[in-house]
Design a protein around this nucleic acid. Sequence first.
DNA 1: TGCTATACTGTAAACGCTTTCAGAAAGCGT
DNA 2: ACGCTTTCTGAAAGCGTTTACAGTATAGCA
Lengths: 341, 341
Amino acid sequence: MSVQRPSRRATITDVARMAGVSIATVSRVLNGTGPVADETVVIVQQAMEELNYTPHAAARSLAGRSTETIGLLLPRLSGAFYPPLIRGLETGAKEHGFDLLIHASVYVPQDGARRPVPLDERNTDGLLIFTDRLDDTEINRLYEQGFPLVLLYRAAPAGLNIPSVTVENKRGARSLVEHLITVHGYRRIAYLAGPRGNEDSYWRELGYREALEAHGIPFDPDLVGRGDFDDVLARSAVEDWLRRRVAFDAIFAGDDEAASGCIMALRQAGKQVPDDVAVVGFDDVPFARLMAPSLTTVRAPIETVGEEAVRQLITVIHGGEPVPFTLLPTELVVRQSCGCK
Amino acid sequence: MSVQRPSRRATITDVARMAGVSIATVSRVLNGTGPVADETVVIVQQAMEELNYTPHAAARSLAGRSTETIGLLLPRLSGAFYPPLIRGLETGAKEHGFDLLIHASVYVPQDGARRPVPLDERNTDGLLIFTDRLDDTEINRLYEQGFPLVLLYRAAPAGLNIPSVTVENKRGARSLVEHLITVHGYRRIAYLAGPRGNEDSYWRELGYREALEAHGIPFDPDLVGRGDFDDVLARSAVEDWLRRRVAFDAIFAGDDEAASGCIMALRQAGKQVPDDVAVVGFDDVPFARLMAPSLTTVRAPIETVGEEAVRQLITVIHGGEPVPFTLLPTELVVRQSCGCK
DNA sequence: TGCTATACTGTAAACGCTTTCAGAAAGCGT
DNA sequence: ACGCTTTCTGAAAGCGTTTACAGTATAGCA
């Protein structure tokens, strides 16, 4: 029985010493680079086993090897939207033998002592960037360096050839709003926009406007509010409308999360959904079908977006030619919150 | 206008060269260690600014400095349970100036070529470990090394003094089941357990049994199934019961996620909830109130668990004395899925 | 004036790894 | 016996930091 020293983690040197070889040889058997005698391989492997050796990732990447890890940068993780996305990403990553490290935090623009992003070209092999998590100058730097990047739910900045994957927002929104107009005859339809600058929101609003226009309904700026794709904010936005006695017979909430906020606000105010006011969302997150009333929405293949994004990223990492722009189809899902039954 | 070299990231050496000082000095102004002439500080800072310098985290931690980062290890991120937890963790981390890095992946026990966990004592200052994400031997190693650890939703392995934070599962479950018994008169109450070995599930089942016993209802093993805290699995578990014509008048689904699966299964089978079968969950995730029928459940302060866990972890990191075991109170939330109105 | 303390700065080692280079040993054809 | 490959191995440099250590001025003090 050996003395258990205050177990420092075993290093490559420890393994080398125990196996009676040089660290170079250990490195070789570890990575399968260069020829090593079968006999030596066995000895080294035993030593690694014995010492429970795990290579030090930081040292590894410092010494210039790939990390087998991809990073995901997003502003936050709270919300029903993210779980399917993450699931897709994980599925994709696992499939290709990559690890996924996630950093969720809002991007704080240029303020003197800004924190560096803890996930970058130095500890990952590639980065998935969700919406506006990283600003264009940083994206530029990474891009010019040739670092593998894939954008989620946003297009690449002008001139940069960065693959991006998103969904058919405009088309989905348009068919959703047209459903409200043609099937239910609503004409005062409100829209709750997402966060400022958000691309999804931009396209959804465009779809909304197109639908109105196609049916001769004038666009009324009073009927556009900010829900920020967030239940709490959407709720207060609707409360505000109610207080100001804005008249509407339906709300396109921007996304499902916001839709749930709308429903809470309306219910609180004693309005029936969908009888008094119809509410529709976007995304078809898992709980949409479980809501009361079940939510009419647009199915966006969130999980597929994740898988596809990873696929593109790994293509880039392997030096392949990615699909520059992937637009996944959306589909209207009619349930009850629009007035259908 | 200067020539734009294929922008390699600036290193401390670049900064030193530009400022005309040694790298030691740069390091000193960077970390505020050791005395540096005010004048020099300015010059160095300008150089850093100019070069857009960011220290290389991996190199830093290699050289033995703290990382200002804490890691979160969990089996997965999909499910309504996680967003509030993450939110709590982020709030806590941000509050203390730490970054949070997340690795979500099931733990694969001892199979020869097992992947090392990409988050450990070498790139974080401390680790938050959710349920059974890491096995006891690894926890042991980290612990003996004196590495800061906090356990979420599980107690420390015997003998190890690792802080852990969880919720009053047993008490919550008991009051939930007692509600079903005393208020609604149900006697055939089924229970859907969580994943094998899961502590939450263990205590909830204990609470369930206590409630039965306290009211003279014999425990029937046929009424215990596996839902794994997952909607899909819970759904098929219920379908299985239905197929086998097991009789029950209420289901305690283990958690809210599983409850939603139960409701889908029952609805599919033409059963009314709560009229034919009552369903209750646990956790009170955000969508519980929005479900149809709205879900009777137990409010577990998930977000608070997160905040508290970070607080403990950071206490340990700073060398303080943590609270060894934090048990947060739960509270019965009566809505409609139990039969109340 | 010379001495010592003080303020500042640079040199170099170390962290754990990969990789280039060169050398040793063994096999082969002549 | 000779030289040439081929196979295997080790020494050492380098990745970007921190930090002990060793300076070098400068100021203060006798």
